[in-house]
């Protein structure tokens, strides 16, 4: 079988590739979750909005993966990285793989991610790697719209009806434990920071917390108090949901390797 060769893990040697996975995989998995809502959004407008956000993220991810594939060489393509890596090779944060459950969860995940994503991109624009800086400069314009969209919905649901408030608070309470993983640097993150390519993630935590608190307060939602946060996704240790997500996302290429449409 020729495709077993393709499934072989990629060389771990390239720190920059691992660093890129750390950024792009989270956007990919979130976009995959969002695309589950296409045709199922609670209203036509939110359906289109969430689908468009997914599309923006997929587009950004393509730019990162094309660059990572170039760094790996060996005729690797963006599709190899999306469809032929195994669960442990994905370096996304746990937050984005959590199932959609209800609209409050969709918005809650989006909000917690967008707020971080925006700060990350703002810093990445200063990266000494010109390609990464260019992708960040392009992406931040789109992510600014995403952030506004999800923050507005947090306020609308939180400060809405009794039911919407209750559901939004439940989602925030449940998702909160995944809201700190962003700021733990992996070995690749540290290496890239040293080289002027990466971002000092730990320095972004305070600003993130205060931006989040501002929106939640306006939404009349309570900020959960928690001492222990979940992490592991950035090191390839995922929740039980990840395997299911990947099997659906990768099904076509795993079944018909190299298929095009």
């Amino acid at each position: 079988m020729s495709n077993t060769e393709k499934i072989t893990p990629y060389p771990k040697a390239i720190d920059k590739v691992e660093f890129i996975y750390g950024i792009a995989d989270s956007s990919l998995i979130l976009a995959q979750r969002l695309s589950e809502l296409t045709g199922h959004g609670p209203t036509l407008e939110t359906d289109m909005a969430l689908t468009n956000i997914a599309l923006d993220l997929f587009g950004q991810v393509r730019s990162y993966y094309q660059y990572a594939a170039k760094l790996i060489g060996d005729n690797k393509t963006e599709d190899d990285l999306a469809f032929f890596r195994t669960e442990r090779e994905f370096k996304n944060v746990l937050l984005v793989e959590i199932p959609n459950k209800d609209f409050a969860y969709v918005i809650g995940k989006q909000f917690l991610y967008d707020q971080f994503h925006y700060l990350l991109l703002r810093e990445l624009q200063k990266s000494e790697d010109v390609t990464i800086a260019a992708i960040a400069r392009k992406s931040i314009k789109e992510t600014a719209y995403h952030k506004e969209f999800s923050s507005n919905w947090i306020k609308r649901l939180g400060d809405g009806t009794e039911e919407s408030h209750k559901r939004m608070q439940t989602a925030i309470d449940d998702l909160w434990k995944y809201s700190d993983e962003f700021f733990y640097p992996t070995a690749a993150d540290k290496k890239m920071l040293e080289e002027g390519v990466g971002v000092n993630l730990e320095e972004l935590r305070k600003e993130y917390r205060s931006n989040i608190a501002e929106v939640l307060e306006e939404a009349t939602l309570e900020i959960p108090e928690l001492e222990y946060f979940q992490k592991g996704g950035k090191d390839g240790r995922h929740t039980e949901h990840m395997g299911h997500l990947l099997s659906e996302m990768q099904y076509m290429q795993r079944t018909y390797p190299g298929m095009e449409w």
């Binding site: 407008e45 939110t46 289109m48 909005a49 468009n52 719209y145 506004e148 969209f149």
Partner: peptide, 13 residues
């Protein structure tokens, strides 16, 4: 405005 995202990402409705 009806929706910040329209039929494509570049448009609002």
């Amino acid at each position: 405005m009806v929706s910040q995202f329209g039929s494509t990402a570049c448009k609002a409705q």
